[in-house]
Design a protein around this nucleic acid. Sequence first.
DNA 1: GCAATGATGCACT
DNA 2: GTGCATCATTGCG
Length: 192
Amino acid sequence: MARFSRDFFLRPTLEVARELLGARLTTTVDGEVTSGRIVEVEGYHGPTDPAAHAFRGRTPRNEMMFARGGRCYVYLIYGLHYCVNVVTEAKDIGAAVLIRAVEPVEGIEVMHRRRGAHSDPRNLTRGPARLCQAFAIGPTMLGADLRTSPLIRVTPDHSWPDAAIATSPRIGISKGQELQWRFFVRNNRWVS
DNA sequence: GCAATGATGCACT
DNA sequence: GTGCATCATTGCG
């Protein structure tokens, strides 16, 4: 399977965010493979962005955001949901891209089992916490190298033209609402 | 030590 | 559309 170059993840966060649309996210947990195409992301740029976890400097929780681009940042939100991010930019810059939604490709039955019965199939992977549940993403994946880890990986797959992409303010934040740092695929049924 | 808050999802109306 | 579960992390005292 093709890989992104090391430099891919070291570029400005918003460029990486835009180009992660269409990339394939794959996890392998207990021998069960699940994968899907990324269709919705948000950029978080610590040095300039009050909504980013890293904005107020390093803490034990956000330390992974300061790693060299290409690693995996997983955190617990609201005490019960996990969210997964792709770390971007050079070492010591606290920046990452939150993956908010994917279009399921492989292991759809496994995802259904992990998520439980739902009437609307879109609820499988629409939303950052839902997709983590469907892909069995948890704290064991914190710090994984997304180019090479057998557990969780992001690889090139599809790419959409700019006309197919839309931007908007990010979801669920109180600061930085003026920034259009959410990127998603227009008219895609898996976008949240 | 303690209180506020949050990059959410679910059940229910 | 609205309300709430539920707790680690954070910042302040």
